[in-house]
Design a protein around this nucleic acid. Structure first.
Lengths: 339, 339
DNA sequence: ATACAAAATGTAATCGATAACACTAAATAG
DNA sequence: CTATTTAGTGTTATCGATTACATTTTGTAT
């Protein structure tokens, strides 16, 4: 009795067949009330639990979905996953999580693993820039398994996506900084071969152009999302002949690093210098000098992604491109003028 | 051609049987080099991927493990999960994540779901205090599925656990605060019906006793882990006739709330008041006034839990109780004396 | 009581991979 | 040149649940 009761065990106990047991358990109309009741009672007594694997093999649906993210221990990704989980759990789906650690090979491997596991759908925030090598993504599409990109998407046919309007977020932020009296705005960019970072850059650029501010290439620095890179970037900026008086960082962590370094140099924020982050990491709110940032509504993003998946599964829509509105959180680090 | 190649398809293509194909793919010795090569080539050409579900059904091993946590979007749990994932991925396991939202029913439900899904092991940080109702846990043990508690454990036979030495962490912290000249130490406690919170309380208590400081019941406040509760608790403490001059909070978030409120009241930290948190949330380090806290090594905890699971699976050990050492991170919020 | 419809149950195939056992063919021993 | 080993394949049952189809039982009408 290692605790594995199957419908055959129940059938044997009641001297009927497994088919009847199955029908009873599934509320099949072709069954008498008496046997149904008997089966249900016995199943309960024998502590029967349906083997989802057997079901999955037969039905071709595993009731699992996969989520592929660069890493899970950042607020953003953890929250999106939570959103997906909350959206899908009521429908009986379990979430399988894979991390790529920003590694391209790992991403390919993860996709394959999930396909082997027969997941019913894949949610993914891409880590790399699958140059021409979309092979592994094509395979998902071919197998007709719903694929939903979130945040870091890639424009493709037959693939859904849920993102925020990164262009708008960036445009509005830049506009805000200009309104605060900053015209020399440095920009910390992520890898622009990823669509979101390209969109953000375009927003920044356009806002400057619309305000007749020329683009200064010296102000544009490519960084990775961490504190140290923010510090280093500021150091570089301050050595310029004509240093900036604001930073729009596409990473909250880099924004934090920038603030640290600026303070060390005795530069006053926001009086002398404004800083704006991106992502609404929890710490941005907690700081003594709270950091202005952009909220990407990760929880809603996850829930929306779940909904897109369900719509596809239920044949309501074949493909959706959902774009959420960014929320500018204007806090102390960029507030000179109180309106 | 929806992209589902099975070994039968390969067999048919080569005019051999599925058994032979299976043997070829599994490097079975009873096969000729020529057919093996042929099969491998054909499998590759037909883009064959093994169906893990079929394998799982037959072998009884799903190669999935389940993780049950209160929530995933906090640094601690996200990091533990990351650790588990990193420890298990090389062995071919996938991680399925479930959240309880601190709800007892949800916890029971999650365990059942994971059992149905035939997971090979369950990692869990318990949300509730299964009074006498250990039924759902017993079932896991009966089915002989490795169960590993982490952090929030419950002492049980046949169940492994990975925790830090909460008693020691608490004792050392209290001792540290006393050494900093604080003898009136308030204590923010979690729910003491959970073992970890009881252990932490005992450490606090013992350290005071060992220093001949009487316990002041007014200083002991039960809180939930968030900023607001920390603020409220401080307010209460400051109305006391004899208010404390230090707080040891078992939650970083509450510690942050406390610091905010103390500053608003013009109380200087650490000169007039020391604060110590618990958990090493990222923000504690980033604050202008960095917050002293205790690191629980969540990544290592996860990796260790993974190892404990593997040891059990491989019959190396039947049950392990691993206790990691806490790391006191003494930062500005509790540093009066610089040694 | 007979015929026939309706209800309830049984039989067997299926999902995909594996493995114990059976079998064929070639290889070696005598 | 026959006997026996052995390398290589084939046959078939299995994991657990579901379901189309077949069969039995029950109920109803005449």
């Amino acid at each position: 009795m290692s605790g594995k009761t199957t419908i055959y065990d129940i059938a044997k106990a009641l001297n009927i067949t497994a088919a009847t047991v199955s029908r009873a358990l599934n509320d099949n109309p072709k069954i008498s009330q008496s046997t149904r009741k008997l089966v249900l009672e016995t199943a309960n007594k024998m502590n029967y639990k349906q083997n989802k694997l057997a079901l999955a093999l037969r039905s071709g649906k595993s009731n699992n979905v996969g989520v592929i993210v660069p890493r899970i221990n950042t607020n953003f990704f953890a929250s999106v996953i939570r959103g997906i989980e909350e959206g899908l759990h009521p429908e009986g789906y379990q979430v399988i999580i894979c991390q790529t650690h920003e590694d391209e090979d790992r991403e390919v491997e993860n996709v394959n693993t999930l396909l082997n596991a027969q997941v019913d759908g894949i949610f993914m925030s891409i880590s790399n820039l699958p140059k021409e090598n979309n092979h592994y993504i094509e395979r998902v599409i071919q197998k007709n398994i719903p694929l939903i990109f979130f945040d870091r998407k890639k424009e493709m046919k037959n693939v859904s996506s849920v993102t925020i309007d990164d262009y708008l977020a960036s445009y509005q932020t830049t506009q805000h900084l200009i309104e605060q009296g900053c015209e020399k705005i440095a920009y910390f960019s992520g890898d622009r071969s990823l669509e979101i970072y390209e969109d953000r850059y375009r927003g920044y650029e356009q806002a400057l152009l619309d305000n007749n501010i020329p683009i200064n290439e010296d102000y544009i620095i490519s960084i990775k999302s961490n504190v140290v890179e923010g510090r280093d970037a500021v150091e570089k900026l301050l050595t310029l002949e004509n240093p900036p008086n604001a930073i729009f960082s596409t990473s909250d962590f880099a924004a934090l690093g920038a603030i640290q370094k600026l303070k060390e140099r005795g530069i006053k924020i926001p009086e002398d210098f404004c800083v704006f982050g991106f992502g609404n990491e929890p710490f941005t709110k907690f700081m003594e000098l709270s950091i202005s940032t952009i909220d990407q509504s990760p929880l809603e993003m996850g829930k929306m992604a779940a909904q897109v998946f369900l719509d596809k599964i239920n044949n309501k829509k074949s493909e959706s491109k959902v774009v959420l509105l960014p929320k500018l959180l204007i806090r102390q680090s960029s507030t000179r003028i109180i309106t």
